[in-house]
């Protein structure tokens, strides 16, 4: 065809438009094949869980499941709360609260990691922010790391009693899921 060098004409335009339509269609038809891998509707259904906190005595911890992830619930002792409060935020590796219940840019003070009036309860997603392992420290006798919170055995991240990263490769504090107290001893996560 190139041998018949011609001015651009209507036929060229139609060929160009046809090719463009075909290309766009091919690109769009890829979308379902990419999208099918995303979490499906049954996984998306945001099931919220209610947890009864009354059996958890001071100093104890429980783990519940929410959206397939473990959630650490710890009833912190006064010393543990104090240790978390006393540490200056400016010295933290990650100064952001990472709390779904407060503003996204709130600083990682102990107050911003908990809910007001329930400062003894630390509720955090129990997945190390480094590479997704489950940190140790929930069970009695577990290694709790250098700061009395949690310790991730995979690559040695240490979290303090407010679930904030203090030492090790993890880039962020443990995430705080959205939750609210429905009564004094009952929370709803999600």
């Amino acid at each position: 065809m190139s041998s018949h060098a011609e001015e651009p004409n209507r036929r060229d335009f139609i060929v160009l438009a046809g090719s463009a339509f075909a290309a766009v269609g091919a690109a769009i038809s890829l979308w379902p094949f990419i999208q099918q891998m995303n979490p499906d509707s049954s996984a998306l259904a945001l099931a919220s869980v209610e947890v009864d906190l009354s059996p958890v005595a001071s100093g104890q911890a429980i783990t519940v499941m929410w959206r397939g992830k473990p959630v650490f619930i710890r009833n912190r002792t006064e010393e543990e709360v104090k240790a978390a409060k006393d540490f200056p935020v400016a010295d933290l590796p990650d100064e952001v609260a990472r709390n779904a219940n407060v503003a996204a840019d709130a600083t990682a003070t102990d107050e911003n990691r908990t809910l007001p009036g329930h400062e003894n309860w630390l509720i955090a997603i129990g997945i190390c922010t480094h590479l997704g392992c489950i940190p140790k420290g929930q069970k009695i006798g577990d290694e709790r790391g250098d700061f009395g919170g949690w310790f991730c055995p995979c690559h040695g991240s240490h979290y303090d009693t407010a679930g904030r990263i203090r030492k090790g490769p993890a880039p962020r504090n443990l995430d705080i899921p959205p939750y609210a107290f429905v009564s004094d001893t009952q929370i709803k996560i999600g």
């Binding site: 990419i34 891998m37 995303n38 979490p39 499906d40 996984a43 959206r67 397939g68 992830k69 997945i127």
Partner: peptide, 13 residues
């Protein structure tokens, strides 16, 4: 990561 997993954690999916 969630696209690879097909969920919010590694699962049978």
């Amino acid at each position: 990561v969630e696209w690879l997993w097909g969920g919010y954690s590694v699962s049978g999916t």
